[in-house]
């Protein structure tokens, strides 16, 4: 909108009952559908086993909340070390990918070297290669490299989906920085390196945050590589640990499972709540080309 005059639009034409039927009620149903599993997860995590296995009581509430499941989770299982692994692997692979992506995106978008257009396209295609067709050959490679069952196995493989994503996203951000700024800096006496560190990077900070947050969540949520490349209990990540170690035969420790799911979701959820705008910008930016 070019002018700054305020506008409210044509909402005055809509009656309140109509708004309820066409807007509020569908929206509430959506919210219920989307949020109920979280409620259920949280509720179950605090429910004592007796209530969990009762078919008579009202299942939608908890009468005597307990921390028993959390205690079991943190004391009887390797949950703390899964958590620690996930944090280390996510942080390291995110920073590694971000660093490589900044250079790659700047080179493709701004240096415009010979073939940069094709490389940009290749990066996009790399972004579309799903882990589920790579995990088998990667597993054999990991084995040959002797890093099977170590954190390195994941730190080195997560960038295969993080770098294409971050590069693609950052290319969009770099594109939005006017060329003249770089030319002006060139005349002001800056080298290419100084242009990158003093002009482009400070201006791309929102993009870096978006890419970083998104990459961190992607690493945190990764499953198939972590399931395939790691086998010792103390080396597992949270998603793999919870699903493989908390299920013993047919005995499901529902309370602990839910507690594990809840605690494992919290870091990304908290991070997300602080950076919602960046996260959404990252997600939509990557889709919008």
């Amino acid at each position: 909108m070019a002018d700054s005059e305020q506008r409210e639009g044509m909402h005055y034409l809509e009656s309140l009952p109509r708004r309820w039927v066409t807007l509020y009620i569908p929206l509430l149903l959506f919210l219920f559908f989307l949020l109920f599993p979280f409620y259920w997860m949280g509720l179950t995590a605090f429910k004592p086993n007796a209530e969990l296995l009762s078919t008579e009581d009202n299942p939608f509430w908890v009468v005597a909340p307990t921390l028993e499941h959390f205690k079991k989770l943190f004391i009887d299982t390797s949950y703390p070390s899964w958590m620690w692994n996930t944090i280390i692997i996510s942080v390291v692979s995110t920073f590694l990918s971000l660093a490589a992506s900044v250079f790659a995106a700047y080179a493709i978008e701004r240096l415009r070297f010979k073939g940069s257009h094709q490389i940009g396209l290749a990066i996009f295609l790399a972004y579309l290669v799903p882990p589920s067709i790579l995990f088998i050959p990667l597993a054999t490679m990991i084995f040959h490299l002797g890093i099977f069952d170590t954190r390195w196995a994941l730190i080195l493989t997560y960038p295969t989906f993080l770098i294409p994503f971050c590069t693609w996203l950052l290319m969009g951000y770099f594109r939005s920085i006017p060329f003249e700024l770089e030319e002006c800096a060139l005349i002001d006496g800056a080298t290419r390196w100084q242009i990158l560190t003093r002009i482009v990077l400070p201006l791309a900070v929102p993009g870096l945050i978006s890419a970083g947050i998104f990459a961190f969540t992607l690493s945190w949520n990764e499953f198939i590589y972590a399931l395939t490349f790691v086998s010792a209990s103390e080396n597992k990540t949270v998603p793999v640990g919870v699903i493989t170690e908390l299920v013993e035969g047919d005995v499901y420790h529902w309370g602990s499972l839910m507690a594990g799911a809840l605690v494992g979701s919290l870091p990304v959820a908290i991070m997300y709540s602080f950076f919602v705008e960046y996260y959404v910008a990252g997600m939509t930016g990557a889709v919008k080309e």
Binding site: P178, E180, L181, E183, C184, A185, L186, I187, D188, G189, A190, I199, P202, L203
Partner: peptide
């Protein structure tokens, strides 16, 4: 190189560093 030509340039969109 531009920086060694001892020139200054004023751009159409001013190219002020926003940060």
């Amino acid at each position: 190189a531009p920086k060694q030509r001892d020139i200054a340039m004023v751009f159409q969109n001013y190219a002020l560093y926003p940060h």
